[in-house]
């Protein structure tokens, strides 16, 4: 057996209605799958930076006997729709379509595997899914939508600083969003509706009791404990009856690097968590 998945095990599909069709790519093991996993990508540039890791891990899942499906939300990647027009409800609808498809074809709902802001969508979807979700795998999760959107707002402000052009304030950006306008941030123009909805999401507020939750957190070389914000989010989850299992890894923080880098440490950790 080689280390690569043959074409027979890959299945690319478009789901949903014309004009808003969702692209999904399924990696299935040669024999009956031990379980299914659905990858929920992060947002904007982070989505692109994580593509290589997502494909590599999807193959690794298939090698370990798990089916893994990758998807693009509407307005991103190979899915239809305009990014400037999409709302959070659209994306939740996309996830629902893919989960439903996996359920129909494999008889079970998938574990949701999120990276960064994809984890917020995973938590939100799992808290109200029609098919019970068997677990969450959260990689460097964005725990607070408010903090996440604040970073994007800052990036817009910092762009003004960098270019030496006039600065726009956080209040002005929010006013534009509330007026239904989109604003360019780092080359992407998300709708105001999407940004204002993301801002309301808090991972610790979702109802996720008894759901197996793996939390993979990046730490600097030599560190063994996550930072303060992550420790607080984990404590809040535990207080809400969730039992998150924390695993730390180091190496390149690929979601924030513009250059692609190998991630052997992380892939090794995932291999240990999903052994042959």
């Amino acid at each position: 057996m080689t280390d690569t998945v043959t074409r027979e095990q890959l299945d690319a599909r478009y789901l949903g209605r014309p004009g808003a069709r969702v692209f999904s790519l399924s990696f299935q093991p040669r024999d009956a799958a031990r379980g299914q996993v659905l990858y929920l990508p992060p947002f904007a540039e982070e989505m692109n930076r994580c593509r290589a890791l997502a494909s590599a891990q999807a193959r690794q899942f298939a090698m370990a006997g798990y089916g893994c499906t990758l998807m693009d939300y509407c307005g991103t990647g190979d899915s239809e729709g305009q990014f400037e027009d999409v709302t959070l409800e659209d994306w939740l609808g996309n996830i629902d379509e893919v989960v439903e498809d996996i359920h129909q074809r494999h008889g079970q709902a998938p574990v949701l595997w999120g990276i960064r802001s994809g984890c917020l969508l995973a938590g939100l979807y799992a808290s109200s899914a029609s098919h019970p979700i068997p677990g969450l795998l959260l990689l460097q999760p964005v725990a607070s939508g408010k903090r996440f959107v604040r970073q994007l707002v800052r990036q817009r402000i910092a762009a003004g600083v960098e270019r030496g052009s006039g600065q726009i304030s956080s209040d002005e950006i929010h006013r534009l969003w509330e007026d239904g306008q989109s604003l360019e941030i780092g080359g992407y123009s998300p709708s105001g509706a999407l940004m204002l909805a993301l801002e309301q999401l808090e991972l610790t507020a979702f109802k996720l009791p008894d759901l197996p939750l793996l939390w993979l957190e990046h730490v600097n070389e030599g560190q063994v404990e996550p930072g303060l914000a992550t420790a607080q989010a984990l404590a809040a989850l535990r207080a809400a009856g969730v039992r998150p299992e924390l695993h730390c890894f180091s190496g390149p923080a690929i979601w924030q690097l513009n250059e692609r880098a190998a991630t052997p440490e992380l892939l090794q950790l995932l291999k240990e968590l999903y052994p042959l």
């Binding site: 800052r154 990036q155 910092a158």
Partner: peptide
Amino acid sequence: FNSLTITS
């Protein structure tokens, strides 16, 4: 050094 690195 760009807007993204300033933010991070």
